[in-house]
Simulated assay, not measured.
Amino acid sequence: MARIRPLMILPPVIFVALAGMFYFGMQREDPDQLPSTLAGKQAPPVALTPLGDLPGFDDAALRDGQIKLVNFWASWCAPCRVEHPNLTALSEQEGVPIYGVNYKDQPENARAFLAELGNPYVATGADRQGRMAINWGLYGVPETYVIDGAGQVLLRFAGPLTQRVIREQIAPVIDAARQGG
């Protein structure tokens, strides 16, 4: 009678384990979207320095009773330039206040970016060292968070906000929050 060696069992066990991981990984709602540990939790502290004479914001602004967006951006970020008109339109059409966090940028470059493209932010500040970004779990810029009036993170979107993303992902969350659900 042939003896089963432990090394003979190892490859099929590894295969089954990997197949299971791949299967469950594919079951996520949007496989292109990175997971967020903040969804459903309070937004982390706001720790920003002023960006010139632009209005700044703090923790209290995130808990003012209004639904809002927090958008991490930088002047050196090409996708941030692409999403900028969509942020402006979202702010104007939906009436959603957008708070900007300028990420690891030179203040003069950030101000020039806003002077050139317009400023969709009700308030903005600089995260020159990236400390706030670390606390928020930022993967890169641009990245946007939908925050409810109590300061709870409802949604995190990594990447530029396109019209499709706004229509299919951001607006439904905003609408649901406005309706109390």
Score class of each variant (00 low, 15 high):
residue 134 I to M: 13
residue 153 V to F: 06
residue 113 F to K: 00
residue 1 M to T: 02
residue 8 M to F: 08
residue 21 M to H: 06
residue 153 V to Q: 08
residue 130 G to E: 09
residue 43 A to C: 06
residue 177 A to V: 05
residue 115 A to S: 12
residue 152 Q to C: 04
residue 147 I to Q: 10
residue 63 R to W: 00
residue 121 Y to F: 15
residue 115 A to F: 05
residue 10 L to F: 14
residue 170 I to E: 12
residue 81 R to H: 09
residue 59 D to I: 10
residue 121 Y to W: 03
residue 167 R to I: 01
residue 76 W to R: 08
residue 101 V to L: 12
residue 81 R to A: 09
residue 48 L to G: 04
residue 131 R to A: 15
residue 154 L to D: 05
residue 48 L to C: 07
residue 60 A to K: 07
residue 150 A to L: 09
residue 13 V to M: 08
residue 46 V to M: 04
residue 54 L to K: 01
residue 166 I to N: 11
residue 172 P to E: 08
residue 149 G to C: 14
residue 131 R to W: 01
residue 34 L to G: 10
residue 63 R to Q: 13
residue 18 L to D: 10
residue 142 P to A: 09
residue 170 I to M: 14
residue 121 Y to P: 07
residue 75 S to R: 07
residue 37 T to N: 02
residue 115 A to E: 15
residue 23 Y to V: 14
residue 73 W to N: 12
residue 94 E to I: 02
residue 55 P to I: 08
residue 116 E to M: 00
residue 165 V to Q: 12
residue 22 F to E: 10
residue 154 L to Y: 06
residue 120 P to F: 04
residue 9 I to S: 04
residue 126 A to K: 00
residue 154 L to I: 05
residue 59 D to R: 07
residue 100 G to D: 03
residue 173 V to F: 10
residue 110 A to T: 11
residue 120 P to A: 11
residue 146 V to N: 07
residue 101 V to C: 06
residue 140 G to M: 04
residue 81 R to G: 05
residue 50 P to K: 13
residue 27 Q to E: 15
residue 46 V to H: 03
residue 76 W to T: 09
residue 86 N to G: 01
residue 160 P to I: 08
residue 119 N to C: 01
residue 84 H to P: 03
residue 51 L to S: 02
residue 124 T to W: 00
residue 39 A to V: 12
residue 39 A to P: 00
residue 21 M to I: 12
residue 52 G to T: 07
residue 162 T to D: 02
residue 46 V to I: 11
residue 22 F to A: 15
residue 132 M to Y: 04
residue 117 L to M: 12
residue 157 F to C: 06
residue 21 M to Q: 06
residue 160 P to R: 11
residue 148 D to R: 13
residue 80 C to P: 08
residue 26 M to W: 05
residue 162 T to W: 09
residue 172 P to L: 14
residue 72 F to G: 05
residue 51 L to M: 01
residue 158 A to D: 12
residue 124 T to L: 02
residue 71 N to S: 05
residue 125 G to I: 03
residue 72 F to Q: 01
residue 107 P to D: 13
residue 36 S to I: 10
residue 122 V to D: 08
residue 92 E to A: 15
residue 146 V to E: 11
residue 111 R to I: 14
residue 50 P to N: 04
residue 173 V to H: 13
residue 171 A to V: 15
residue 56 G to S: 11
residue 68 K to Q: 15
residue 61 A to S: 14
residue 53 D to F: 04
residue 56 G to D: 04
residue 152 Q to N: 15
residue 65 G to V: 07
residue 75 S to Q: 07
residue 64 D to K: 14
residue 44 P to W: 04
residue 132 M to N: 01
residue 140 G to R: 00
residue 119 N to I: 04
residue 96 V to M: 09
residue 78 A to F: 11
residue 170 I to V: 14
residue 3 R to Y: 06
residue 21 M to T: 09
residue 161 L to N: 00
residue 41 K to W: 09
residue 6 P to T: 12
residue 101 V to F: 02
residue 13 V to A: 13
residue 86 N to L: 03
residue 31 P to S: 03
residue 65 G to W: 02
residue 129 Q to C: 03
residue 123 A to L: 05
residue 85 P to M: 14
residue 150 A to T: 14
